[in-house]
Design a protein around this nucleic acid. Structure first.
Length: 423
RNA sequence: GGAGAAAUGGCAGAGUGGUCGAAUGCGGUAGUCUUGAAAACUAUUGAGGGUCACACCUCCGGGGGUUCGAAUCCCUCUUUCUCCGCCA
């Protein structure tokens, strides 16, 4: 959520920056300012009415104490009208505040100056590319066929138990999943991230805190009986640790990592690109989350990007990094780098990580602040990234490491799997 | 799931209808003293809105109500603790 003060001061600049997302927010911003104006004037009226009735109440108290009941009763009738006015003003104020909130929820984050203009993923800017794309033999298979051939992932069984998009991992497939999770967590903790385990279900306030609500309402599984949501990413519970908190400047940087399953309804997804592990309703992911001083957040973002590069080098997977264009940028992000691994058998790039700086957008909703050096409170910056999402890493490994008679295991994972090939 | 008790500032803890945004202690910050530190002493120390700055308004778990006036009374929800039941 954008800060009102920023909108008041830089309306034009913000509207201009939002055109990169291909939206014209100028009327919306104008409405926000007008509503804010209304809200403040109602607030002022309410305040002075309350002040008046507070004064009267005190006088009435004094009069009763001094035995002047008659005079007190005269004042009482006066407070009745004030009370009525208070009630109306309070209602006006509440409705102005609520409408303002609704409007603010509709405005996405302002893109960082480096974000390229563009409409779709076609316009994302490749900023880095590394690793040899292996030459596979003609009989190379996509991972869903490999999964069947070596009996390591059973998609049909998942359909029977839950539905499409809920695979069952078996034998070495299951072990490889566990190995990847353990390896990622070890790698992240070695880089200074503190490992935590968080709830996999969150309440509504948490959904609003990180911006999944109301924007992505239909994409989360909602348990109506208890009004809880299954998390679409660990970002939600981990970042919400800091909802309604005031940190000290010396607490930075705050670095957390956690493994969770992620649940996504993926309503509206279809087609060949959702085959196999490419798009699932439930998948595993290890996430990194940072809370930073505003002065340091972009340096932190670079650090996270470097960290993920390092993991992919370890795994010896060919990858590239994209700077997302305005049209492809998530609602809450100011700048996002996507990591993609090349799937040789599918002959396409698979997104395996997304690293973003949200600046104060989430912090404003979360009320995540810190006391700066002068003791003044200001909003912190939040960042997060996948480190990494399992299914497509698994797909990349299966496809790129396949040989005619088995699948090799990347060297760094062997201590975790306890085997060096699947055959 | 049943019965009972509770929820107050960073923490502990007073406050049962008016001058309470809230005693006191601890903690934090600044200062005095000291070569330095500790101790002691002094001052200061919650959040949000609003204002150029004041004023002013709101907040004692959340929501609603009674009252001229609510931390204090009533209703409701949530959470915590104790006992019983169940249980990985």
């Amino acid at each position: 959520m954008l800060q009102l003060q920023a909108i008041r001061e830089h309306k034009e600049v913000i509207a201009q920056a939002l055109t990169k997302r291909n939206i014209d927010a100028s009327t919306l911003l104008e409405e926000v300012l007008q509503l804010d104006e209304t809200r403040r004037s109602k607030q002022t009226q309410l305040d002075s009415t309350l002040a008046e009735s507070n004064t009267l109440s005190k006088e009435i108290g004094m009069l009763f104490k001094n035995g002047k009941a008659a005079e007190a009763n005269v004042l009482k009738t006066k407070t009745a009208t004030l009370k009525e006015a208070t009630k109306n003003l309070q209602e006006d104020l509440n409705s102005a505040t609520a409408s303002l909130q609704v409007l603010l929820y509709q405005i996405p984050n302002v893109p960082h100056p480096s974000v390229p203009a563009g409409n779709s993923e076609e316009d994302n800017e490749e900023v880095f590319n590394e690793g040899e794309i292996p030459k596979l033999n003609a009989k190379a298979l996509p991972h869903w066929e490999l999964a069947k051939k070596y009996d390591i992932i059973d998609f049909e069984l998942g359909v029977k138990i839950a539905g499409a998009g809920f695979p069952v991992y078996k034998g070495k497939g299951a072990r490889l999943q566990r190995a990847l999770i353990a390896y990622f967590l070890d790698k992240n903790t070695a880089a200074g991230y503190t490992e935590i385990q968080v709830p996999h279900l969150v309440n509504e306030a948490s959904g609003y805190g990180t911006g999944q609500l109301p924007d992505k309402e239909g994409q989360m599984y909602h348990i109506t009986a208890d009004d809880l949501y299954l998390i679409p990413t660990a970002e939600v519970p981990v970042t919400n640790i800091f909802r309604d908190t005031i940190l000290n400047a010396k607490d930075f940087p705050i670095c957390y990592t956690g493994y969770t399953p992620c649940f996504r309804r993926e309503a509206g997804s279809y087609g060949a690109h959702v085959r196999g592990l490419n798009r699932l309703h439930q998948f595993d992911k290890v996430e990194i989350v940072r809370v930073e001083h505003p002065d340091n957040s972009y340096k932190a973002l670079d650090g996270m990007v470097d960290h993920i590069k390092d993991i992919l080098r370890d795994l010896k997977l060919p990858f590239r990094i994209l700077r997302l264009c305005g049209g492809d940028l998530g609602f809450t992000a100011a700048l996002t780098f996507d990591f993609e691994v090349y799937s040789t058998a599918q002959e396409r790039w698979l997104e395996i990580s997304s690293v973003s700086n949200f600046e104060t957008y989430q912090a404003n909703r979360l009320k995540l602040r810190f006391k700066d050096e002068k003791g003044k409170r200001q909003l912190a910056h939040t960042l997060n990234g996948s480190s990494l999402a399992l299914p497509r890493v698994l797909a990349g490994i299966l496809e790129n490491y396949q040989t005619e008679d088995g699948i090799e295991i990347p060297e760094v994972l062997i201590p975790y799997t306890g085997f060096d090939r699947i055959d």
